[in-house]
Design a protein around this nucleic acid. Structure first.
Lengths: 307, 307
DNA sequence: GTCAAATACTTGTCCTGTACAAAAATGAAA
DNA sequence: TTTCATTTTTGTACAGGACAAGTATTTGAC
């Protein structure tokens, strides 16, 4: 067991810390070292790895570029400057749509208040449905790309997502809970900590009059199943972000065996791209298909039960 | 690489899924298997482990009891029933204080709306400061203990924390952002996903007129440092829950080397118990010391700058 | 030349087994 | 009873091998 306390002042970060900072597993860090010779961390007295800040920084950059589709073998050999250039080139600044004007500036200006005001302004201007469907649907990837290009720092992206969550929750508080069917529960699978997509769906479901129950993120699959049963929900909504590590495919297959019959599963988010061979009860959908999906569900119900 | 898709329908869960479901690392799962003979998962065609639902359930129960102070060696040999009995005995139902009356019932009644109403009622009855300091400070551990005893399911605890977050955020939205010093940023270290403590602190700071900036959870330490610098904050508040896996000690030590001089670090939460040898800039505090801490900070500032 | 199938390469995760340091428990002395 | 030293327990680190899934590249038919 490495001595965690010896690390900070001097050499660098132990491997567990690097895993948490970069999201790259210990196994993989060791494998890259073996295969590519990078990163080649120093060692402490006990022979445990100690990664320098520079190595951790490069690892983060490599990881970003991998999310863009690059393979690690091509990346690890490059210098930090080359990697940054690569990120620049491959996420060309898109034309910022009018609705998002000023957003990136507000974020990089380190002014939390300005960001919040901007979001609120858009919300009142567009109304909740279009705020979600037109503004957030555009702004979220825009912020992600700006971060890829290095125009935004991690903490600025954190600030953005925190303020979006805040504004959405404030607003949801003002909408009386719908009581119509379908009764929907919202959550994410373990490891998926992105809540924004879930809140966006919740907003639209509330507007459609559905009885939506939010359970937050990261519910173990067995608990999703029993909660769905106990709360007598009709639909389980799961959101998968692009950075979801595990396989939505597997999650859905497991849930299919755990869930009682008659409960549907609706999946959304960038992490669902390329999903196939879904169980019969599962549906893949985008935000703008949600209303249609709710209507469709209502039509499928026996008239006696439908509201 | 195991075939994740073959698992769900038949035998059980692959080791990565069990790690995510139980929070027990792969390394440790294999170590327990070798040392204690439990869990002893089936194997797929490739020789990869496949854990049954029963094994995963027992692992979760073992983990709960370990949080109560039991050692794994004493636990793994016991049957599921014995483990449940143990949990019953060692978390005796406390006398439920009046303020919390009805809470557990509302949660186990699977009525999200009732929970929300109860929380709102307490909030209006007590006011924000006492809601945080008197109600939540009592209710949070109460819910945790009820879960330990098996009186609440995981999803009921999820529901509780989701509704608490919701009510707190609604309320925070109504308090104009304070603009007085100190300027405080709130976040948690990577791996710490509990937000409630942070929201409670934010509420109290806002009431004290502080300029509080919330960054959400799980910021890499390097980003905490640069955000603190760029946003020109005076204090970084970190919250550590009892279930924090990594070492707050190490985190603070690392931050101490990364943060610019003059920025203080305030630590709170159950995860801080037993912390010692803190850097000079770090302070350990509980909720009820927060006001005093803010006053203390203000007094320490040169009069010219103090507000 | 174009498309599709077969082949080769790349990459992530799993495996076994070992080692060791930190934490906890135990026992001895004050 | 408290304090200190010793033993046991426990978690995390290491090395290096294996292999399947995903990706690229070549081959071959049309």
């Amino acid at each position: 067991m490495m001595n965690e306390d010896s690390a900070p002042s001097d050499g660098g970060l132990p491997i567990a810390a690097v895993e948490r900072e970069t999201g790259i597993s210990k196994d993989l860090l060791r494998m890259w070292e073996r295969r590519y010779g990078f990163p080649q961390p120093a060692r402490d007295a006990a022979g445990d790895r100690l990664y320098s800040a520079a190595q951790v920084g490069k690892l983060k950059q490599v990881r970003r570029l991998m999310d863009l589709g690059f393979r690690p073998g091509k990346l690890v050999g490059q210098s930090m400057a080359q990697l940054e250039a690569l990120a620049q080139v491959h996420t060309p600044a898109r034309v910022v749509p009018d609705v998002c004007a000023g957003l990136i500036d507000a974020l990089s200006g380190h002014d939390a208040l300005a960001v919040r005001e901007l979001l609120r302004h858009r919300l009142f201007e567009l109304g909740l449905r279009r705020f979600v469907g037109d503004f957030l649907a555009v702004a979220n990837p825009l912020v992600g790309e700006a971060w890829m290009r290095g125009e935004l720092r991690v903490y600025e992206e954190h600030l953005y997502s925190e303020e979006v969550k805040r504004v959405l929750r404030e607003t949801l508080a003002g909408i009386p809970a719908g009581l119509q069917s379908p009764r929907v529960m919202l959550t994410t699978c373990p490891g998926e900590q992105h809540l924004i997509g879930l809140l966006m769906v919740e907003a639209l479901l509330r507007l459609a009059g559905c009885d939506a129950i939010a359970f937050g993120t990261q519910m173990p699959l067995t608990d999703i199943a029993s909660a769905a049963h106990k709360h007598r929900v009709d639909v389980v909504v799961l959101s998968f972000s692009a950075s979801y590590e595990a396989s939505p495919q597997t999650d859905v297959a497991v849930l299919d065996t755990l869930l009682p019959d008659g409960i549907e599963v609706w999946l959304g988010g960038a992490g669902c791209r390329g999903l196939k061979r879904l169980p019969a009860r599962a549906t893949l959908l985008t935000l703008d298909q949600l209303d249609a999906c709710v209507s469709g569900w209502r039509e499928r119900q026996p008239p006696a039960i439908a509201v």
